[in-house]
Design a protein around this nucleic acid. Sequence first.
DNA 1: GTGGTCTAGACCACA
DNA 2: GTGGTCTAGACCACG
Lengths: 133, 133, 133, 133
Amino acid sequence: MSLRFDITPGSPQPIYEQIEGQIRRWIATGTLKEGDQLPSVRALAEQLTVNPNTVARAYSELTAEGLVASHAGRGVFIAARRQIYSEEERLRRLSCAMKRFFDETAFLDIPLAEILRRLEEAGTDYFTHSPKP
Amino acid sequence: MSLRFDITPGSPQPIYEQIEGQIRRWIATGTLKEGDQLPSVRALAEQLTVNPNTVARAYSELTAEGLVASHAGRGVFIAARRQIYSEEERLRRLSCAMKRFFDETAFLDIPLAEILRRLEEAGTDYFTHSPKP
Amino acid sequence: MSLRFDITPGSPQPIYEQIEGQIRRWIATGTLKEGDQLPSVRALAEQLTVNPNTVARAYSELTAEGLVASHAGRGVFIAARRQIYSEEERLRRLSCAMKRFFDETAFLDIPLAEILRRLEEAGTDYFTHSPKP
Amino acid sequence: MSLRFDITPGSPQPIYEQIEGQIRRWIATGTLKEGDQLPSVRALAEQLTVNPNTVARAYSELTAEGLVASHAGRGVFIAARRQIYSEEERLRRLSCAMKRFFDETAFLDIPLAEILRRLEEAGTDYFTHSPKP
DNA sequence: GTGGTCTAGACCACA
DNA sequence: GTGGTCTAGACCACG
């Protein structure tokens, strides 16, 4: 069964990040479990009609984060769940992301309460309506 | 009195965006008010030890957004508050910012509820405890 | 086929604005349609014998206005039509343009009625007889 | 009696152009007639609290266009009405101004008919409601 | 002195 | 190959 990626070439978000994001989400939502095999770089590149380097980069970053592990000659697999970042590092990253988010939205004249309401909605959506595999 | 910019060269976020973000925040929080003068392009470039063009770009984008106005030979000033974007555009920008935020935080294994709680706290803080200039 | 830009270096209107204006016109008149690719920054810079940064600035401002979208590594493309400015902002811009127009023409001793007649003619022409690309 | 100039320092339009524009309008509408004396450079600079160079530049450009004439040691006076530009040159300037006007407004999604209606209104206003001297 | 335009060229990210 | 960021420095317009 092949995973159903939804790639928008030429979105502001680079393709390799779109690939990464979908795999991360499938892992987060349980669609992909430890030990599951991902399509090969070449196969996925052909399926998405993108450059193999693009897929390779996505896999490489997921590997660096410990979400997947590649076994030379056999393929790329979902790794056992572990968190490479310390509690402190995670909170630091969350804090940076929040700061940036407010910097990007503070001048839109949208009340904080509405922003929070929409965030909750979008967040719930993000973690449940994961795109179908 | 000079503004206290906090610039991280070599961060994934370009320098001109960091400058923009901080000025936006100071405007949003009332630290900078209509009519206040910003440091000159050259002076700020020297203070931050970046190229004047980098500062000029930040000022130029803020000018295009109507947040500041530049007066040849006199300087750059905080403009009267107005909203140049349509409702639709503002929601589109909010939506992009939210998507980006979740992409940056979803893999941190922090429960959505906690993220939202921290966001509310940070948001409230953002608009009251403006960072010291 | 390459677009036929008409650039006057050393005009009071900066080169990047001249480039922007012509692309805006081609979009407004339908000569350029959603999805059409613009010449690469380097190619257009060479064609017009201007610095690539000058072309990049024009493209960057059109991107900020949502008229075109750039895709790293692939090129710059005409975006789907959308209006990012609020009604108020659009009228403000129209008003500025009208003021500027009268300041440029009032001293020509051409009767207002004739100016208006020619404007109507030129406007109709503008939106139908788009300049050949 | 002193003329009532309306100057907005730090508008996108430079101060010397604002001064020029108002004098041009007063001449066009008959508020200022041949032989009328303009305030001295120093007096007007003081009245508007701008740099004397700024006033001098406005007067200098009006002199170049033949609208006023300066008599050393006596002052600056409204000149006899004459048109220094040829018919051809005037139409060329009108044509440029129209092209620029449409380039600045075509993307605002305002129907041509409405633009023309507003132009007629603004034009009538421009030539009759001249700012009071 | 101020900001704005333009050039030249380096380096990086993306595909 | 594409566009994006940044530096360095020249030149002009404005006051």
